[in-house]
Design a protein around this nucleic acid. Structure first.
Lengths: 254, 254
DNA sequence: AAGTGGTCTAGACCACATG
DNA sequence: ATGTGGTCTAGACCACTTG
């Protein structure tokens, strides 16, 4: 009908394998990244979007909900949908980098330094909710990548004679098992924390770094479905082997 | 019809202020946390859920999508919905803790140690995409909480005479502005990284810690809507003042 | 009163898996 | 062939804000 003039309006491809709501998300993210909608700006109303792209309200709503989850926009009932600004506090980091260090199938190996059943130290007993003097499985491992030490792991696993150790539970402290997490049916939840530390003499020796050099310490506690702590330990990784990164704000692709 | 025997089935309260799909999410999370559905177990089919709770397919789907987003379940088309196991790699940390350090309205103040326009060092010029020798706004700040130093910030802001500095842009390097991030309309995106470091002599002095003691270093780069870097800098926070934590797996409440 | 976001329905159709 | 997840429709009704 009209001459096909240059339009900046992207459209939904109904024949695409990609769902309409995802296409719509992409369209808005692209337009925001391009500066068409700046932080604080108001997006078209849902009714307008429906008409413009020929979609039903539910589909549009789903796209907007995704944008909200991704921190891209904010909605105010009765008022509109607005582009969010950049907030430092919204940045989140994950263990992807550490995982890749360990998961690299290429040339990584786990060296068991120590593995035995000992009496729990007061701190470990506290963490595992045991009386001091109770027995725990104690493990110290070194993870090597291409022959170089990368991660040191120190772990304590609940040892209860009435509660036979199944292979699955041992996987909890097995480095690869935990990260790939194939199918942990006995573990309900876990608590992790990241600290900045300096290497002690022993750790420095194992990791082949200077004593006092910086490192990350990743503490972990795991619980079973009775909410009993069953595993407590920590990873130590030299600072030069690990970096946590996060993207915030409006990126074209992610 | 039948006697009201004890049923473990929670139901949807249609008169609640809480949307049905959120109630459904809570029901499943509670049941999973209670061990009714273990990792790997299959949830009832969507059709069954619809009948059981008297909801339409879209509402049930929405609840399941939320569970997927939260990493609670996994769906396999044509097969079913399954409870996910615990995976270390899924833990994610955010800057909430650091934010609370800074945002505490109670008794925090920012002490400007240095603020001037200088020639960019080679590294800063590189980061900001400038020729070496270009002018940048250079700022060093110390954040005090209850009179004690907590965070040291070192920042560099693009200085372009043709591009007058508006108040909004200065907020980018203003600590509080960035974290609360009221309404940054000029910043499109940012890149953050967390490193473990040891304090140098100067930093140690400012933060009142021993030289060589561990600390977190949070590097940041911000970009405008032309994808030009406009701000580069870093925060340094002693390790004993900051802890990143993450919960993984199935928690009752979050 | 009009506009906007928010929830929900009761189906439809499709793609995939084999309970 | 049946059951399952996945998408989408074309409305409805409600709560909220004030364009």
């Amino acid at each position: 009908m009209s001459v096909s003039t240059a339009k900046d309006v992207l459209n939904i491809d109904r024949d695409s394998f990609e769902p309409a709501y995802l296409q719509l998300v992409k369209i808005f993210k692209a337009q925001i990244a391009a500066g068409k909608y700046r932080p604080g700006a108001k997006l078209p109303s849902e009714a307008v979007i429906c008409k413009k792209y020929g979609l039903s309200p539910m589909t549009v709503r789903r796209a907007i909900n995704l944008l909200i989850d991704q921190g891209v926009v904010r909605t105010v009932q009765g008022s509109g949908t607005f582009v969010k600004g950049v907030k430092l506090s919204s940045s989140s980091f994950n263990l992807q980098e550490l995982m890749e260090l360990i998961q690299e199938e290429s040339d990584t190996q786990v060296k068991v330094l120590e593995m035995d059943i000992t009496k729990a130290s007061p701190e470990v007993a506290e963490r595992l909710g045991l009386g001091s003097g109770a027995n725990v499985i104690h493990a110290r491992r070194l993870l090597l990548s291409h022959g170089h030490p990368v991660v040191y792991h120190h772990g304590h696993l609940l040892y209860d004679p009435q509660r036979p150790i199944v292979e699955g539970e041992l996987d909890v402290t097995s480095l690869r098992g935990l990260f790939s997490g194939a199918g942990q049916t006995d573990i309900k939840k876990g608590l992790m924390s990241v600290q900045a530390v300096t290497l002690g003499a022993q750790e420095a020796g194992l990791l082949k770094r200077e004593q006092g050099s910086p490192a990350f310490r990743l503490e972990h506690t795991f619980f079973d479905f009775d909410d009993r702590p069953v595993s407590y330990g920590w990873f130590v990784c030299p600072a030069d082997r690990l970096l946590f990164t996060a993207k915030i704000g409006h990126w074209d692709e992610e």
